[in-house]
Design a protein around this nucleic acid. Structure first.
Length: 619
RNA sequence: GGCCCCAUCGUCUAGAGGCCUAGGACACCGCCCUCUCACGGCGGCAGCGCGGGUUCGAAUCCCGCUGGGGUCACCA
């Protein structure tokens, strides 16, 4: 059977609505049997991985392994993307003991879901590093945050993270915190913070607490929290988990270059460990102001459970600086302190942070704090697959979308489509749709290319769905910026009449400028596009004259009367086909070979302007 | 380079060992509608990176390779 025939098969049930998938082989319920709303299971935060897993499979005495374990292991805690599967035999309503995994292999790459194994003997079992305490999760109050640094135009990644943060927060009824991480004084940009507010607000990604609106954990700007961090640095120093380092940047650079030359792993050589300033000065390459570094132990935790990826291994960290010479904490310290102090339960951030997670884990443990749950989102990519950057991709700048005329609902929908899919398979959806069915295990681990084609289509779709008055008001800024629109009642009426003519003809709001130019351009400035003149106007004098004559006789000026007169004069009178007849008229009146529907456009323009243009083009 | 993450059409994705002859969407191509351009309708092109293994059966589980990415700062 030819492939085409096979493919055609499922199409027998016609789609009755754009949003209706027409050929899933199964009903969604059958494919994805879990309704994530029914239980907050993904919420289980910070159980230390290894122990948990062991607990889960303990009854069978299986040896715990992380992803990529040897074949045939049955100790899989859970299937990340298919929670129900795991739950089937979980004994929830069944007294008889069941295996965690009746018959499946464990480790699909995506992530072992945590918190799913009902066999764990001690709920909240903690690792040695973790303090005892009631799980935050049990309160059901989740708190997530997005933490942009004000170092330039707001980044699309900030919106991406905010969307996923918020989808989960709103589903769970928690809070979403906006925290400004402005500890990098060198790259600080004073206008950036406001732009972050503006762009996120534009997208409707509203935070519950933040520098601008305050909240119970204020301040939310790290530069205003400097005093907060100091005691914890002292505590780490006192407990021997951190030490002063007086090495100059030059010495550090030299050391690194040398390590690279010798092809050994780069990292601080601990020259300052255990030394006083005086002792250190004698060795050279020292400066008076020290930084504070973490003393990474040999047994530092290098793996953790990720909501999206399951068990994750991370690289062994270097002796990370946590307090800079200028007295500011680095990101690593500030993020841990603030996340703890602000009661953050889930840390959702880009994949690029996986490699520094062990540092954060250590800090949480050393400070005696409960670890939050982690979810590392895939990285948005340029077309060449590299991490999305402002240099390679205009779309990396959030303000770009506003400039181009993307609708916030389209961008949001598109962002939601990157690395994620709704259980229903639906591709056109609102934030509410996404939030209602949100599930971390449906987030992909593959970094999606940020490709503008589909966004353009979505944008066109949303533009078409807009009520005309709404579209009209959204076009005004673009027309005004182009110098076409003056806000007068005449212009307003003209625009109101023109909007329905162009609504299906735009993928971007900014395209209205070209589409509407012929309506708003002044009579003196009006001119016919050279290509259109060449193609349609040469030797079209008789047609244009006949058209003008017929129209000038009209006493009423409506779409119907205009079209009637034109058809009578040109189709019946001159024996032309409509396509042939309208082309020169279009060029003369609209100045282009492409325009909104002709009779409608002419009706809108008015008799005088139409006749003027017709006669001008006829000579 | 070390370490880590990842791998289904060009792109975004569905897929949880048999429902797969791998489905959808965007893009692209063709036809229809049609005054141009769109919209809309119909159809088409196009993919499981490679090699082993486990299994009666592998896109799916395991290993290796290859490839891509990230990270190795007193940036975040």
């Amino acid at each position: 059977m030819p492939r085409g025939a096979a493919r055609a098969r499922p199409r027998r049930d016609p789609r009755v609505h754009l949003r209706q998938r027409r050929d899933r082989t199964r009903p969604p319920e059958a494919r994805r049997p879990v309704d994530p709303r029914q239980e907050p299971r993904l919420v289980l935060p910070d159980r230390p991985v290894g122990r948990d897993r062991a607990a889960c499979s303990g009854r069978r005495g299986a040896v715990r392994r992380r992803r990529r374990g040897p074949p045939g292991r049955e100790d899989l805690v859970s299937h990340p993307r298919h929670p129900r599967h795991h739950r089937v035999g979980d004994g929830l309503h069944d007294a008889a003991p069941r295996r965690c995994h009746p018959h499946r292999y464990p480790g699909r790459r995506r992530a072992a879901r945590r918190g799913q194994c009902r066999h764990r003997p001690h709920r909240g079992h903690r690792s040695a590093h973790q303090p005892r305490g009631r799980s935050r999760m049990s309160t059901g109050n989740v708190r997530l945050r997005v933490a942009p640094s004000p170092t330039g135009d707001p980044h699309v990644g900030t919106a991406y993270m905010s969307l996923f943060n918020l989808a989960f927060v709103r589903q769970q009824g928690g809070q979403f915190v906006l925290r400004v991480e402005d500890t990098d004084r060198a790259r600080f940009d004073p206008t950036s913070e406001q732009q972050v507010y503006d762009t996120l607000a534009w997208l409707g990604l509203q935070w519950d607490e933040g520098p601008d609106i305050g909240g119970p954990y204020a301040p939310y700007r790290q530069s205003e929290r400097l005093d907060t961090y100091r005691p914890f640095v002292d505590q780490l120093l006192a407990s021997g988990h951190a030490y002063h380092c007086w090495c100059t940047p030059d010495r550090l650079t030299e050391m690194r270059e040398d390590q690279q030359k010798r092809k050994v792993p780069t990292g601080y050589d601990r020259l300052c460990v255990g030394k006083s300033y005086e002792q250190r000065v004698e060795l050279g390459g020292a400066q008076a102001t020290p930084v504070v570094r973490m003393l990474i132990p040999d047994d530092a935790p290098l793996h953790f459970t990720d909501l999206i990826r399951g068990e994750v291994n991370a690289p062994r960290p270097d002796d990370q600086v946590i307090l800079k010479g200028d007295g500011f904490p680095t990101y690593h310290l500030a993020v841990v302190v603030d996340d703890h102090l602000m009661g953050i339960t889930h840390v959702v951030r880009g994949e690029e942070w996986i490699s520094s997670t062990p540092k954060h884990l250590l800090l949480f443990d050393w400070l005696g704090w409960e670890r939050p749950a982690f979810a590392h989102m895939p990285l948005l990519r340029n077309v060449d697959k590299s991490k999305i950057s402002k240099r390679k991709n205009p779309a990396a700048r959030l303000t770009w979308f506003q400039e181009q005329g993307y609708l916030p609902e389209a961008l949001l929908n598109f962002l939601g489509l990157l690395g994620y899919s709704l259980p229903s398979g639906e591709e056109v959806f609102t934030f509410a749709d996404m939030s209602a069915s949100f599930d971390w295990t449906r987030v992909n681990t593959v970094g999606p290319v940020f490709d503008l084609d589909k966004l353009g289509w979505l944008n066109g779709h949303y533009i078409r769905e807009l009520p005309a008055p709404s579209l009209q008001s959204q076009l005004v800024p673009f027309l005004t910026a182009a110098g076409l629109y003056d806000g007068s009642p005449e212009h307003e009426a003209l625009l109101a009449g023109a909007v329905p003519l162009i609504q299906t003809r735009m993928a971007l709001l900014s395209e209205c400028v070209d589409l509407l130019r012929c309506f708003f351009v002044s009579d003196e400035s009006f001119e016919v596009d050279p290509a259109a003149r060449e193609k349609s106007l040469v030797a079209a004098g008789p047609v244009l004259t006949a058209c003008a004559d017929a129209l000038s006789a009209l006493s009423t000026w409506t779409v119907e009367s205009v079209q009637g007169a034109m058809d009578a004069a040109l189709i019946e009178g001159l024996g032309l086909k409509r396509g042939k007849a309208y082309a020169p008229v279009r060029a003369a009146v609209c100045g282009s070979m492409i325009s909104p529907p002709l009779p409608e456009s002419m009706a809108l323009l008015g008799k005088d302007r139409v006749l003027t243009r017709l006669r001008a083009a006829a000579v």
